[in-house]
Amino acid sequence: MDKNMRILIVDDFSTMRRIIKNLLRDLGFTNTQEADDGLTALPMLQTGKFDFLVTDWNMPGMQGIDLLKAVRADEKLSSLPVLMVTAEQKKEQIVEAAQAGVNGYIVKPFTAQTLEEKLVKIFERLQG
């Protein structure tokens, strides 16, 4: 796992962005940027050469699921690994995210350990 990879954190709550950012820094990932919803995130992704996307689901403007679908539909972004970190816990939503091509799904509240596990798992699978 490249610790210098560029990570975009998308959540409408700045508290949650800060938590994720600090947790990632604690895991050695310091190259992070933030966006507060899908509408802000998408242009950043299209121009910013990000290696990894961490996104919430329920946000004003563009929802996380729509951001995920937009990423998968974009030729240049389609293989970008996406981790969803959300309070949405309905089974049909998790299934919807899986079908849309999410690489990992974490429900809030979550622990530092869960985030690390999912990151490791996602990159193991991508390399394997």
Partner: peptide
């Protein structure tokens, strides 16, 4: 459409109760 955070004791049925259940559901897929 969006249900928001699940609240223990309020949500049931179609809702997972934690990360373990999310992982189980995803691995079943």
């Amino acid at each position: 459409k969006l249900e928001g955070p699940a609240v223990p004791g309020v949500d049931s049925g179609d809702t997972v109760s934690g990360q373990d259940e999310v992982d189980d559901l995803l691995s079943s897929l």
